[in-house]
Design a protein around this nucleic acid. Structure first.
Length: 609
RNA sequence: GCCGACAUAGCUCAGCGGUAGAGCAGCUGUUUCGUAAACAGCAGGUCCUCGGUUCAAAUCCGAGUGUCGGCUCCA
């Protein structure tokens, strides 16, 4: 973008007072967003051309592209997308200028009404209502026109349609008008547009790459887990997937033991009276699987927290006992809506590396700092860089505001003292607790929310009437911290599978080495080497099939096994091995014991490869 | 839950009114091999389920289930 264009953009950016930012082009700050938003206009032009009666919803710029919502007489097909795209290319080739016009709201509404654009009428009504509510005069609206197309819009846009870069329509999906499931469902067409062909190609390549390393595909290819319609939304873990699971669990148990956590285990099937006390029966009922026995109503637990209080309250607690740190790899069930289930990342049954820590107020800050160290430690095992977000008190919150203020102050101190770089997300806490959410960016630049640390002053302490006895013999209220580091193990495994494209670091790889005898006469030695390595705790397999060595290497590569160890006459003779890494590097021959010791040390170091 | 698409061998997919196919994997045999695919043969299917249209349905229609892309939801 040159200087002239930038100047024009600023002119075009003249704000419309009272505009409904959430519906018009909120967030169109990046220069490429003007191009993306312009592409949305051109798409709407094309759709109106092909479907003259189409009604328009909204069409903003989004990350990587744009969309526009349409109300159409019939569902769009892939052929329609091609036709729309072709029509868009004509408009781009014609280089129609984008012209901004100001129109009195009443005139705009009359025009929209006359054109049958009911959704636009609604937006205009809202603009007016908002201004009235604010005691402001009725605003003037801005429209952007190009060719025969005109749309209510704050802008900015590019100079003319010819400035729109290489684009591609991607998909069509249903979307509720204004995101409200009680309102009509429109057809949302997604597209992507970039400044250069290279960027478009790169984006499309990344999409294809993401699809290739989709954990659902890798789960089949690596024989880790599967799904079945006998239990939708719940994974069946195969032996190799279960090994990953156990490895992650063992690592977390070790970390937790060092930090003074004690593991508990509580029932999955729980009487409704517990959920009534915790508030879940009212607030979370639709997500709970409920069942009845002998006239009593039960639920499969969707969370571990309420039951941890049963253990806490099993005896009187002294101030000397705190902090009490209960960890639990609890198996949870949540009745997610069928349409939202997705692989390992959205499931109905999962296990969290959950913990509930009960502290005195004066211990809170130090405990949070220690938890932040836990997060950094655990993520360093995968080479992941955690990013922190501090979510504060929402408008709808339980408990004494003074307590909230104190808790937030302590969280802030802990965050600052830990040297963490963090953003504040105002009013994004839960109704019972301010929290620290932890995010990572994976190898494809996608953001994932992983761990969470919630400081609960209300739900567990108040509703379950928790107490400890202080120095003066008086009962005091503890604070409960809810904490998960992997979050859901299912989800975490799905994410690291995609992050590493299935080539998990040595320490978590379900098979760490495959021993490949060249001929049958090397089979016995292969078994001996496997025994040497297994004695060091390494997960080793022998490929004793009658295939050729080259093919065995190929299969091991496909299984992303970190080390392949070919055994032939040379190696068997002097009991050495020359491992090949999955990166294709041939390492020098060493004696079996030395190799086993080296790999075992490498695995126990728990580092990304 | 809602909108749309999809469901064929263990896996990846072709076939789209007229006898169910390929590659890989599996099994058997031959081969005993030096760092990403040896050769041959065999076997493998309620074409997701139920119902309808038709002389005839994997194929067309309807319902259900599951999955995928979104929307909604996500303590």
């Amino acid at each position: 973008m040159n200087e002239q264009e930038r100047d024009e953009e600023e002119v075009l950016e003249a704000p419309v007072r009272g505009s409904a930012d959430e519906l018009l082009d909120a967030g169109a700050h990046d220069p490429i967003d003007a191009m993306r938003h312009s592409a949305a206009h051109v798409m709407a032009e094309a759709v109106l051309d092909l479907f003259p009666g189409a009604r328009l919803g909204i069409g903003p710029a989004i990350a990587n592209g744009f969309y526009y919502d349409f109300d159409l007489p019939r569902p769009l097909t892939p052929d329609d997308l091609e036709a729309i795209e072709a029509r868009m290319r004509e408009s781009v080739a014609a280089g129609h200028a984008f012209v901004r016009r100001e129109i009195a709201l009443a005139d705009a509404r009359a025009a929209a009404h006359g054109a049958g654009q009911a959704y636009k009428v609604e937006i205009l009504d809202d603009l007016e209502a908002k201004a009235v509510a604010a005691g402001e005069p009725t605003p003037v609206t801005s429209f952007f026109e190009h060719a025969a197309f005109s749309d209510l819009c704050k802008g900015p846009h590019v100079e003319h349609t010819g400035r729109i870069g290489p684009f591609r329509l991607l998909s069509v999906a249903g979307a509720y008008w204004r995101g409200d499931e009680k309102r009509p469902m429109l057809q949302r067409v997604y597209g992507t547009v970039w400044a250069t062909q290279e960027e478009l190609d790169l984006y499309l390549w990344r999409r294809a790459e993401a699809k290739k390393r989709d954990h659902r595909r890798l789960g089949v290819q690596l024989d880790l887990f599967s799904f079945s319609d006998v239990s939708p939304g719940s994974a069946f873990w195969h032996p190799r997937g279960q090994r990953i699971w156990r490895t992650l669990e063992a690592a977390m148990r070790e970390l937790q033991a060092e930090r003074g956590y004690e593991e508990i285990s509580t029932p999955i099937l729980v009487h409704k009276k517990l959920w009534q006390q915790s508030g879940h029966w009212d607030l979370y009922a639709e997500n709970m699987f409920r069942l009845e026995s002998e006239g009593q109503e039960f639920s499969l637990k969707p969370m571990n927290c309420p039951e941890s209080t049963v253990v806490y309250r099993s005896r009187l607690r002294s101030y000397r006992d705190l902090p009490i740190r209960y960890s639990e790899f609890g198996r949870l069930h949540r009745n997610e809506r069928s349409g939202s289930l997705s692989g390992l990342t959205r499931v109905r049954q999962f296990i969290q590396d959950d913990a509930h820590v009960y502290v005195r107020p004066d211990q809170l800050s130090a405990e949070i700092e220690a938890m932040l160290r836990e997060v950094r430690e655990a993520y360093s095992w995968f080479g992941l860089q955690p990013r922190f977000a501090f979510a504060t008190k929402p408008d709808k919150a339980l408990g004494d505001p003074a307590l909230w203020e104190r808790a937030e102050g302590l969280i802030r101190v802990a965050l600052d003292r830990s040297g963490a770089d963090y953003v504040v997300k105002p009013k994004d806490g839960t109704f019972y607790a301010p929290k620290i959410d932890i995010y990572i960016d994976d190898a494809l630049g996608r953001e994932w929310q992983m761990a969470t640390i919630q400081v609960d002053l209300v739900m567990l302490p108040e509703r379950f009437d928790l107490s400890y006895i202080d120095e003066t013999g008086q009962p005091q209220r503890p604070i409960a911290i809810h904490r998960a580091i992997y979050g859901s193990l299912e989800r975490f495994i799905g994410i690291i599978l995609e992050h590493f494209a299935g080539a998990l670091p040595l320490w978590v790889a379900p098979v760490q080495a495959v021993i490949i005898p060249i001929a049958d006469r090397h089979l016995e030695a292969a078994g001996e080497l496997a025994a040497v390595m297994r004695a060091r705790g390494l997960r080793v397999e022998v490929d004793g099939s009658d295939g050729r060595m080259q093919n065995k290497i190929r299969l091991a590569q496909e299984q992303k096994v970190p080390y392949m160890i070919v055994l032939g006459d040379r190696e068997v003779g002097d009991r050495t091995a020359s491992p090949r890494t999955r990166a294709g590097v041939q390492q020098p021959a060493v004696h079996w014991e030395d190799l086993a010791a080296r790999l075992a040390a490498q695995a126990s170091a728990r580092r990304p490869d």
